[in-house]
């Protein structure tokens, strides 16, 4: 694999040519695919497909596993560019800007109905969301910054609502747990204000992502008793939580704490 004729730079900048799609290596031709941080560009002039970098960072080339298909003509490699750690000095940039299918995210429950729970996505599993969703832009302080004239105050991309500026999602009742899916009662699974760990099923429609908690490690991770007025509760089993101070016991679909 190391006999590729293409020599990759260790660092790249946007627009930098990384490699052609096909490289005539021995004994097999190598085919490169564009991974994260790169883009496939077609040059009309000499009818050539090339991969260019789209961000500042380190270039990595890794083999792609093609299951089942014995591609005997080509070696498949994926080229990607990952951001430097060094760049993270001022803002806590994450390379993840948008939730994608399959990502595990943290979200806050904002509305419950019989069929679904509406949530806002506030972070990835162990990375915060981009900063512009926080108080700095959003501000739910004592002096509410988005009340009153809030209706006419909008970012160009986003209508101002009670939800702030985060992406929204839906957990449908049949996606709450894996077993006995038809008998899920949403009020026994989530309460508004709970922090839920969930996985993204699909990008959904224009407004909502579709999320699921049908896994042992997914579900409520932070909850307060008495609809948020009480104290923090901790999971006892997968469907009960208790507040150690008051002894209150409430029903939730809990995430496995281990």
């Amino acid at each position: 694999m190391s006999d590729t004729k293409v020599k990759f730079p260790s660092r790249s900048i946007p627009g930098q040519l990384l490699c052609p799609v096909y490289a005539p290596t021995e004994p097999k031709v190598t085919k490169y695919t564009a991974g994260p941080g790169t883009k496939l560009i077609h040059y009309d002039a000499n009818n050539l497909d090339v991969i260019t970098s789209t961000r500042i960072g380190h270039v990595t080339v890794s083999p792609v596993d093609v299951e089942g298909k014995d591609d005997n003509d080509m070696i498949l490699m994926q080229v990607s560019v990952t951001s430097d750690e060094k760049n993270d000095k001022t803002n806590s940039h994450s390379s993840k800007l948008l939730p994608k299918e399959g990502d595990v995210v943290l979200c806050r429950v904002i509305r419950i109905s019989l069929q679904r729970a509406n949530v806002e996505i506030i972070g990835f599993q162990n990375e915060p969301m981009p900063i512009d969703g926080g108080v700095g832009t959003n501000g739910h302080s004592v002096v509410g910054v988005n009340g009153g004239s809030g209706g006419s105050t909008f970012s160009m991309s986003q209508s101002s609502s009670d939800l702030g500026e985060t992406f929204r999602g839906i957990i449908r009742s049949q996606d709450v747990r894996a077993t006995d899916r038809d008998r899920v009662k949403m009020v026994d699974a989530f309460k508004p204000g709970d922090i839920v760990k969930a996985q993204i099923l699909s990008l959904g429609d224009g407004v909502n992502y579709y999320l699921t908690t049908a896994r042992n490690d997914l579900g409520v991770v932070f909850a307060k008793s008495d609809n948020g007025a009480g104290s923090l509760m901790y999971a006892m089993d997968w469907q009960t939580m208790t507040a150690p101070v008051t002894g209150a016991v409430e029903k939730r679909k809990c995430a496995k704490p281990f």
Binding site: E127, D217, F222, Y234, F258
Partner: peptide, 26 residues
């Protein structure tokens, strides 16, 4: 001691920035 419990048996932990986001008060 609740908090110590969560630390001991909670391998699910959150990065400080994430915790600040999901539960600023805590």
């Amino acid at each position: 001691d609740i908090v110590e419990d969560t630390i001991d048996i909670h391998p699910v932990s959150f990065a400080p920035e994430v915790l600040a986001r999901i539960s600023p008060e805590l």
